[in-house]
Design a protein around this nucleic acid. Structure first.
Lengths: 102, 102
DNA sequence: TTATTATATTATTCTTTTGTAATATGTCAA
DNA sequence: TTGACATATTACAAAAGAATAATATAATAA
C-alpha cells in the first residue's frame, strides 16, 4: 500500500499541469477517444463512429484536448487526422489499462 | 506514438469507472492529497497542513474521494486516518509521477 | 459535565462543464 | 461555380463542481 519512492515535491510542482490533463480524461467518452487515438491516428468521422458521439460534441472535445496538449491534428485533404500528442499520453493510457483493465 | 497492445474493448468496459476515478484526480489539490496518501496514512489535520486547504473543503474532498473508492479511512481515537484505498490507486499515482515528473 | 480538539455536514454563491441545436467554414468533385 | 461532404464554431439551458462560511458531531481530557 505504501510507495516510499513517490516524491511529493516532484508531484507538487506538476500538480496544476497534470491535474489539467487528468481532467481532460475525466469524461468517459474523452477517455475512449484517447484510447482509440493511442492506437493510431483517426479522422473525426472515424472517431464519431467508434465513440458514438454527436459531431459537434466530438469536435468540441477534440478542440479542448488539443488545447490541453493531449492530442495533435493534421489536415490531409478534407480530413483532419487526430492523434495522441506525444509519448507520455500514450504511456498514460497504457498505464491506465494495465492497472484497471487487467 | 502507437500502442498496438492497448485493447479498446477492455478500456471501453471500464470507461465509466475509470473516468470517474480520474475526475477525482483532476483537481490539483485532490491529486496532491492522494500523492501524500500514496506514501502512507495521514490524519485530516496532517493533510490540511501538507496541502494548505481549509478544513471544510479538505473534508469534502476526502468524503468525495472515499465515495469514489480512491481512499479509505479508519478512526483511531479522535483522529481519522486516511489512506489510499488500494494498490491500484498507489500504482496510478506512481505511473503518473513516472510519466510526468521524471 | 464542560471545554477542547478533530472532523463532518449543510447552505450558499459562483464558475465550469455538458448536451444540444444551429450555423459556419473548408475542401473537393462535377 | 455549385453541391456535397468533413469539420469547426457559437449560443444557450441544465447539471455538476468549487470556494467559503457557519454549524454540527464525535472523542477525549480536565
Amino acid at each position: 500500500m505504501l510507495a516510499k519512492n513517490i516524491s511529493i515535491p516532484k508531484i507538487a510542482r506538476k500538480c496544476e499541469e497534470v491535474s489539467g490533463l487528468l481532467r481532460s480524461l475525466s469524461h468517459p467518452q474523452r477517455l475512449m477517444i484517447l484510447g482509440h487515438l493511442a492506437q493510431g491516428p483517426k479522422t473525426v468521422s472515424e472517431l464519431q463512429k467508434l465513440c458514438d458521439l454527436q459531431q459537434s460534441q466530438l469536435s468540441q472535445f477534440l478542440g479542448r484536448m488539443k488545447l490541453e496538449g493531449l492530442v495533435a491534428c493534421e489536415r490531409k485533404g478534407r480530413f483532419q487526422f487526430y492523434s495522441a500528442a506525444d509519448k507520455r499520453i500514450v504511456e498514460l493510457i497504457g498505464a491506465i489499462q494495465k492497472i484497471f483493465c487487467e
